[in-house]
């Protein structure tokens, strides 16, 4: 058995430029994916891709954040940092999935929601809040897969799911380790130290009950043998989807509610 990787090492694997991205997963797992665009208010955010596809005989809605592999691709998708239009499009597609009784699969790889001027003017906070609120009461199966980085409310806005899955080297956190160390210690260069403290790796989060399953990756990371990663993600999705397909809509909403209701429950104490 190889030594388990450090959190900092996993962060660099999660951010590897050749790591399989949303388009790669679509090609491998959802070859007939049909993209749907726009928030029906004012814009189309290329940082979030969403649409419908057939997955093992079942129609599903697939939504995910996009990252490019080159600078040029990344400029097109704003380095995977969504604007409010993206979250509103995602919500529109999720509510459409609810209407047509399609399960929802989200693929998350984002360093966070975009902290720009226009994003604020268009209500970044409101858009994320609305997604959390509406996702909590969907009556179709929702499965979120964190494939790379899952940072901040920008990731959570697509992750209020019945099952939250993470690739073995993906990370999921309140914000990037750089942001964390600069807020807490006013020193972004201490990010490696932050990685160790943040409990952001898949095995740690599984142990804490924040996520449901860890999807294995090929040794050294998914970019070294993407085919293996695709098959593992497919297998895990199929397993969880078949379990959720057996549940009634009301039970799906109730279970999802309870899952997040129980996060960080505390006991009353008399000594403060």
């Amino acid at each position: 058995m190889a030594e388990p990787l450090t959190a900092a090492r996993r962060v660099s694997i999660a951010r590897h430029p050749q790591r399989p991205n949303m388009e790669d997963y679509l090609q491998a797992l959802f070859p007939d994916f049909f993209a749907l665009r726009g928030d029906r208010v004012c814009g189309e955010d290329p940082a979030i891709l969403g649409g419908i596809a057939r997955f093992h005989g079942q129609s599903v809605t697939v939504i995910g954040t996009r990252k490019g592999k080159t600078l040029e691709e990344n400029l097109k998708v704003n380095f995977g940092m969504p604007n409010p239009e993206g979250y509103r499009k995602a919500l529109r597609l999720m509510q459409q999935a609810e209407k047509f009784r399609r399960p929802i699969i989200t693929l998350i790889d984002t360093s966070g929601a975009y902290p720009g001027m226009q994003a604020e003017e268009h209500g970044q906070g409101e858009a994320i809040a609305r997604n959390l609120y509406e996702m909590s009461r969907l009556t179709v199966p929702v499965i979120a897969v964190i494939t790379g980085e899952g940072n901040s409310g920008g990731a959570l806005a697509l992750a209020v799911a019945n099952r939250v899955l993470m690739l073995e080297n993906a990370v999921y956190a309140i914000l990037s380790p750089e942001g964390f160390s600069s807020i807490l210690w006013k020193d972004a260069s201490r990010h490696e130290e932050a990685c160790g403290l943040m409990k952001m790796t898949a095995p740690e989060l599984k142990a804490m009950g924040v996520i449901d399953d860890v999807i294995p990756e090929p040794a050294g990371g998914a970019h070294l043998a993407p085919e293996i990663a695709f098959r593992e993600v497919e297998r895990s999705l199929l397993l969880h989807l078949s379990q959720l397909n057996r549940q009634k809509g009301s039970a799906l909403a109730a279970d999802r509610y309870e899952k997040f209701r129980s996060m960080g429950q505390l006991s009353r104490r008399e000594d403060v």
């Binding site: 959390l132 309140i174 960080g264």
Partner: peptide, 11 residues
């Protein structure tokens, strides 16, 4: 409180 702080948003 890291990720548990994030989860309070959903809760």
């Amino acid at each position: 409180e890291g990720i548990l702080s994030l989860m309070q948003m959903a809760k």
